[in-house]
């Protein structure tokens, strides 16, 4: 009975969404049809042309210098430059939720015991892969302004490497004190960079470093620095949460 009522409710909701999305019925559509978006005149076009603060010529990869935000990846230029304050809030949300995980799964803890002890090959193969994964994660956030990726995926890849060690070795544990120091340092440095922008440029998280040539590794001002900090912070936060899930409380 309950399932039937839920199904009915879902059907009504689905019909409502479909009708309001695809059948205007005299009014205007809430969203344009799929693929029919026109970016001209929208702020998105200004983000693509890097002309938010004023009109700008065409940006050319590898040639244009000192463009606004200076990042070849436009999504990154939005996330860590135009809307960097938003990202600071996002990082804070992640901090608060991992804090909640730490409180719920806190106390004196030990590793969960496995029914089958992992063998030599598994342990050492996982350690070999761990190094490769960490290097890939660092590559991911160091090139966040040039290629797809950035601090959040890079940090998640590093946390995945830690998870691999947790799964393959039943005695491995990260040093939680070190994780907390890395997390706190990275988070405070982000805010300090923002305050440095406030002191030099007049507003919080101002991109005060030279922007360089679009497409070069050393370009885009503070974006690579901030993304590296975000990567470290996200990686250490998720690693701390993983530690909470892979351990159990010790009865005192």
């Amino acid at each position: 009975m309950k399932k039937f009522i839920s199904l009915l409710l879902i059907a009504c909701l689905g019909a409502f969404i479909f009708i309001s999305l695809y059948f205007p019925g005299g009014g205007t559509l809430a969203f344009p049809y799929y693929g029919d978006v026109d970016l001209n005149g929208r702020v998105s076009q200004a983000y693509i042309d890097k002309s938010v603060n004023g009109p700008n010529d065409v940006v050319v990869y590898g040639e244009s210098t000192d463009e606004e935000s200076g990042s070849a990846n436009m999504v990154t230029s939005i996330v860590v430059d135009y809307r960097s304050f938003d990202t600071l809030g996002e990082v804070t949300v992640l901090l608060v939720s991992t804090l909640g995980v730490g409180i719920l799964l806190g106390g004196k803890r030990k590793r969960l015991e496995y029914k089958h002890a992992p063998n030599f090959i598994l342990k050492h193969g996982a350690r070999l892969t761990f190094g490769l994964l960490v290097v890939f994660g660092v590559y991911m956030f160091a090139h966040g302004h040039l290629t797809p990726g950035g601090g959040f995926p890079g940090g998640s890849i590093i946390a995945a490497a830690i998870l691999l060690l947790y799964l393959a070795d039943d005695e491995f544990r990260v040093k939680l004190a070190g994780i907390k120091i890395a997390e706190g340092t990275a988070g405070s440095l982000y805010v300090i960079i923002g305050l440095a922008g406030l002191a030099t440029g007049g507003y919080f998280l101002y991109n005060f470093l030279p922007n360089g040539t679009v497409g070069k590794l050393f370009s885009a001002g503070i974006i690579p620095i901030v993304y590296a900090l975000i990567g470290l912070k996200v990686g250490s936060e998720i690693s701390g949460a993983i530690d909470g899930f892979a351990t159990e409380e010790v009865a005192e």
Partner: peptide
């Protein structure tokens, strides 16, 4: 994809909405 690369090298091309 809204990323400038050595192939898609100017902002005058047609990109999807990055926002």
């Amino acid at each position: 994809a809204p990323i400038l690369t050595s192939q898609a090298n100017t902002s005058a091309l047609l990109y999807v909405d990055p926002l």
